[in-house]
Design a protein around this nucleic acid. Sequence first.
RNA 1: GCGCCCAUAGUUCAAUGGAUAGAACACCAGCCUUCUAAGCUGGACAUGUAGGUUCGAUUCCUACUGGGCGUACCA
Length: 563
Amino acid sequence: MYLFELKEKIASFLGVDPLDFVYPPLPELGDLSLPLFNLAKSQGKTPALLAQEQAEIIANLPESSDLFLSVKAVGPYLNFFLAPASFLERAIIDIKQTGSNFGRSEVGRGQRVMLEYSNANTHKEYHVGHLRNLFYGDAVQRILQFNGYHAIPVSYINDFGIHVAKTLWNWQRHPEYAQTAGPKGKLLGDCYSTANQNIGDSQEAKAEVSATMKAIESRQGETYELWQETRKWSIAYFDEIYQRLGIKFEHIFYESEVIADGLKITEELLARGVLIKSQGAIIADLEAYGLGVLPIIRSDGTALYPVADLALAKLKFVDYKLQESVYVVDIRQGLYFKQLAKIFELAGEKFKISHLGYDFVTLKNGMMSSRSGNVITYDQLFAEALARAQKEVFSRHQDWSEEKIQAISEKLAIAALKFEMLKVSADKVITFDMNEALRFDGFTAAYLQYTGARLASLVRKSEIIKSGSLDYQLLAHPKELALALCLQRFPEIILKAGEQRDASVIARYLFELAQVFNDYYHEVPVLKAETPLAAARLALLASVRQVLENGFTLLGLSYLEEM
RNA sequence: GCGCCCAUAGUUCAAUGGAUAGAACACCAGCCUUCUAAGCUGGACAUGUAGGUUCGAUUCCUACUGGGCGUACCA
């Protein structure tokens, strides 16, 4: 936190906000800069004049000689030139001492926040769209935790909706499914997509699906037993996916477990007039608040999605004593969450629920749709990513064992998928393109991992270099100061990512850090330098590695020792 | 119809009121007897339109154009 403390010191001396600092666009302008427009306005001076006055005052403070090479006024900006050796020493020691906690903040201390994500449906396929949700939620959970929150990761699986009835309806009418070998979870996905095609516009089929739904809800009989069995397949399939991708939940909720409570709450709210009957259905009429109408119970008496959410929210706040419950859900459900929040408000519940939306994943040839079969499933994508990674690794390391190639390829493939979903702001639609997503150069996870592997390699080869006390004065290369300055920006990046609940900030930062390091790596020899200098440079590189690792951990990327 | 979101280089993205709008990919020209070339260096290329607020606008406001999404029994 050294840089941030330095900024706070200057800011409090001048009476400004430490967040006012900017980084100059050109190195000749300095390392750190403070625009004085606002301060000048409040003092009734011109910014340029104020900058000149303050530059002189600060330059003459006794502690300045240690911290700054110089302090210059450049127009309305007050520009600071850091004293390299002094800054590098403090920056490196700071990172070494805090280690894996470097960048951690305490802004969320004492707050219990639950993040609900990966709200997959059983009896359906798992596709790229789900992966965006999964990786985004997972990263934000860790980012909040790193910002001092108690962030609780949970998943809510819908195992009891109409999609289940559609799948089982199709399954029962096509005995060949039960006889098909192979992974069962995937098979259910296939069964679901053909179910939609088979139903089409047929009123008869729709009536049969409705009857199937009621049979499941009755919780007895043959169809219910089929539901119990097939449900397990889907859940096992999801567990497999989570395990392979390194995703962990503290708890997984299921719609089938909360729906009964939801129906009770629905009855209560109906009795209290919060919900009403209309056209044979039970709805929340929120027209008065500009939020339209939300159907809760279908006119055939079967439950809709909100029923379970009514119970689930209560369960979460009571059992987990939350300050806030965050729903990481596709932005297209924005209206739904406003409606849900309004219903709780009308019911007198003080639940702070927030919708953390992100835009959807589409394909080059149009929107993903199970009905038309236009989807890229998780299985397809993972297999392709793995195959490409294996090809890349093998082409460089024919001497490696198959196991080693496999292990590293898998880590590369997983990181590639995660990074692809995380590097874009949440409010951007991702048009998924296999060839673009599975690149291993440019703004990709592989570039970051490659940078990490180079660093690790340097450290491995440096074991012979020993030096008693480090002489930071030797770190006089301008790129060394630039690198240290970049490292010290990490805590600010974490704060921003936490405030905005956005992982892309970290992705971009890590890429920039990697670029700065790779530039340094090419220009400045480390192991071949004189021993004391090599030792000092290695200390700087250890800091780079630490920051990269901390960032990788937050995004869920593996740090590879070699690749 | 009403509501929400988006519009920046050929393409995919940055820049949430500050200095000369940054990257990546693709394209062109270079760099491996030197710490991993999955890398590095250089080149060319952009703010949808019209107003407004401000010392200063990609950023805020208004209108327009184009695209996407949502809007009672999907989730």
